[in-house]
Design a protein around this nucleic acid. Structure first.
Lengths: 159, 159
DNA sequence: TATTGTTATACTCTATAACTATA
DNA sequence: TATAGTTATAGAGTATAACAATA
């Protein structure tokens, strides 16, 4: 896991120790989640509510689709949306032509909050990565993208 | 945030689109958390219980230290340890010379589970990153390490 | 019959406030 | 008084199972 550090492959990264890709990614994920948790808490939100706002930012979707994206049981999605609706962040809207389906959409308030939260997350992550050189930040961005898209592809094929 | 993709700075990464460092890191963190959640669920654990095992893997620690590391209120740590102790994964051990303090330590069973879980996580992340070339995997590892250690340093200074 | 969603129930996880006991 | 930890309470989040309504 951990890479033996040689001058040849070092390519100048300041880190003297290398956590390895396993612990590195795990710890990085907790770091980002902690950051998201802090931003969410500022607005009285949990991470899952933050995520709900993020998912609904660019689409309107049914309960079943929501539970698939958030990897929740549909009954959990019901409760999640109930609480968000109680706070007037989202609305259940009827679907024309299918009377048993509902779509969940952001309210005006929810849209504003989603925008604010996204901006704050962007600021914090920018700060977090501020010490990286531009090429390294781009490397990181591309590597993260590769993993995320690769996993999405693998998961669609297998399931 | 998103990087304009030019032939010059492309450095050959297969990703045609780049999520940008903000969305890339956020989505990557959810991907890793989802992976951790699947591994945890296999053993009837939650992510926080998984984390508890991970934290106690190489140290024995008091409730207050635990709550700082896990970013929980101390009362939340009490409940967490209560439930883990009920499942015989950890033990509260008295601290000699300080009768109001307790340390939390893994039981034999907890140690075995922590090892098993860590191995499974390693396997899954290895699979996840299997398509990366060795140099790219090393880049990723070093970049993750840089962010994690940098944040730890920044946070110790500020708090 | 299958699909979409909700309800009932029970448990985990979490925070706040108040408490005990020791330092 | 300050520190280490627990208890009481309330609410969010989650899963399982059973249900209702529509397709």
């Amino acid at each position: 896991m951990a890479t033996r550090s040689t001058l040849a492959d070092q390519q100048s990264n300041d880190a003297v120790v290398d956590l390895g890709v396993v612990d590195g990614l795990v710890q990085l994920s907790f770091l980002i989640q902690s950051l998201l948790g802090r931003v969410a808490a500022r607005h009285g939100l949990s991470i899952i509510q933050l995520r709900l706002l993020g998912v609904l930012r660019d689409r309107e979707i049914g309960m079943l689709g929501l539970s698939r994206i958030l990897e929740l049981e549909k009954s959990s999605a019901t409760g999640l949306v109930d609480r968000a609706e109680r706070r007037e962040l989202v609305r259940r809207v009827p679907v024309v032509g299918n009377r048993r389906a509902v779509h969940v959409a952001l309210s005006e308030q929810g849209q504003a909050l989603a925008r604010a939260v996204h901006a704050e997350v962007a600021t914090e992550i920018t700060t977090l990565t501020a010490d990286l050189s531009a090429p390294k930040r781009d490397q990181l961005s591309r590597l993260a993208t590769t993993l995320v898209l690769g996993d999405a592809a693998a998961r669609s094929l297998r399931l």
